[in-house]
Design a protein around this nucleic acid. Sequence first.
DNA 1: GCAAGATCGTGAATCGTTTCAAGCTGCGCT
DNA 2: AGCGCAGCTTGAAACGATTCACGATCTTGC
Lengths: 331, 331
Amino acid sequence: MTRISIRDVAIHAGVSVGTVSNVLNRPNLVAEATRERVQASIGELGFVRNETARQLRQGRGHVLGVVLPSMTNPHFTEVGRAAEAAMNADGFDALWCTSDGSREKEQRCLDFLEEQNVSGVLISPLDLGEERVAELHGRGLAVVLLDRIGVRACSVAADHRAGGALAARHLLTRRHRRLAIVTGPLSARPVRERHHGAARAALDAGLSRHDVTTFEQAEMTAAAGQAAAVRLLGLDPLPTGVFCGNDLLAIGLVNELVRAGVKVPTEISVVGYDDIDLAATAVVPLTTVRQPRVDLGRTATELALAETGDPEHHDHRQVVLSPELVVRESA
Amino acid sequence: MTRISIRDVAIHAGVSVGTVSNVLNRPNLVAEATRERVQASIGELGFVRNETARQLRQGRGHVLGVVLPSMTNPHFTEVGRAAEAAMNADGFDALWCTSDGSREKEQRCLDFLEEQNVSGVLISPLDLGEERVAELHGRGLAVVLLDRIGVRACSVAADHRAGGALAARHLLTRRHRRLAIVTGPLSARPVRERHHGAARAALDAGLSRHDVTTFEQAEMTAAAGQAAAVRLLGLDPLPTGVFCGNDLLAIGLVNELVRAGVKVPTEISVVGYDDIDLAATAVVPLTTVRQPRVDLGRTATELALAETGDPEHHDHRQVVLSPELVVRESA
DNA sequence: GCAAGATCGTGAATCGTTTCAAGCTGCGCT
DNA sequence: AGCGCAGCTTGAAACGATTCACGATCTTGC
């Protein structure tokens, strides 16, 4: 069976296609009686608007792309959820894509979104060149960078440097003098900034370079955290305070420490980052730096929607949100 | 600036639009020289195909919808990833939607996908009526049910009853005689089946109704697992073996038990379900029932693609995959 | 009785692609 | 020379919606 089109509805209701379209888009322009008749036909025939055709005509769809580096890190999916909720509230829908840590896949995602004619993109970029952003802009897409301050585009980011400092200072005020920092790949800007923030805070507090050793892991997963723990346990003397670049790392690390018989927080204290749901229910409930997830997501779509709304000249805004320390038991 | 269309390319290359389209879709039909000239123009102008228009013409896009109950449960996202990978290999793309546990949102997802003209839907349904499936079929969409055996549609499911039995039997052979089952909402079929499978295995092994107490939690999260643990610790005598309906529950539960000073597995043994990544790195590495995640995802898209391929009469297939016990330390 | 609005409805043009019947060339063959 | 054929290319007709200039009908006030 072929799909029901606006034309079928028009015939069934005995009106013109234009009128059906008006019922759909500007109901106030059509007389009560006709409107109801058309509505009835729509219901009876089970008509669903072909968004594809609508987009083609209108030039752009009511859809925003969301490109995240991973679906398995709850932090990102929560940000995305907040973003999506905000979109829905404005009649937009979200198209989710994952770059899965590969810059090539990231490009494929963007190609896909362009082809799908989305009106904007929220992206937490792996490695997005200035040119590509410009290209997207050139094609009329709104672009909002998540967690990356870009000069030529809107962006919303958490202040990772401050967050790292928050974590480190917490350890320092608790009299820890030998620190370890377990971090993800330093090639990623937010990761690097957390690290810098923490390291700088340590130095400012009078620690020397030797007092803080950093472990760079290729992934930011619990498994990587576990691996970091065994590396860390090889140190002598042991550090007493550890800052992990995200909660997954921290969870894997704490688990391994506990398994090895090390008491957390008495022998080693651990601070995580993100405050994902799992942090609160970890064996040792995790002290962590909370990112303003829903604010991040929400303002990202707000910026995107603002940009698509105002067609032409639009001032790119850089929103920076502050993280917050959540003290639980691990430090 | 307005988007570059196939027509612009045609003019730039000095050919007709038909030829450009041929270069794109049946390159073998066009002479080498022309093809190269067109390709050059495409590159030079930065043309991207408007998938929207293409879909409109072709009737259906090269896109499959994926509807999952949650983005925060790694099990589902991994299944989705496998499904997406299989699609990409066939030139299809995935559209991800989340029902977020709400049947209303589930319907919205399907509406969205219909509007977007996807050619099929993989759905792990919350509460999908027969009629809705029929409706989708009627509109020419392929439908593949994940984790739900439906007679009027293709489906691929893991054998949850067998999985539950696997878990319970593992505990039983280890001489546990007082069991607890921590489960998600029994209104969800897969959850119910895991429970049944486990309970039945216990009874078959000669346990009585009193020997196994079940805790039904509204959510299947670590937090819920934690809550279950405190309920469970109120029991007297304590059960010695616990089967959790998924790994997140198990992780939350184990963490809380450990925190309460209960030794796992010596005092209480715990078996999870899913074998998500976190299971292996938990404080007590989790013994769990592994679902064939990538097979699930892959065969789901295979079924969907087969259905869209063969236009008309197509025999719905029900694929059932077997789970597998992974023994670690928690039981 | 009539001009001027106001209110509704119409239908053709349009968006960017694919598809396909038909046209054009040049070549080999008789 | 004429024919048939293969290989390329063309251009117009769809796909299903939105938009908009224009008609048709109805009010209203004088």
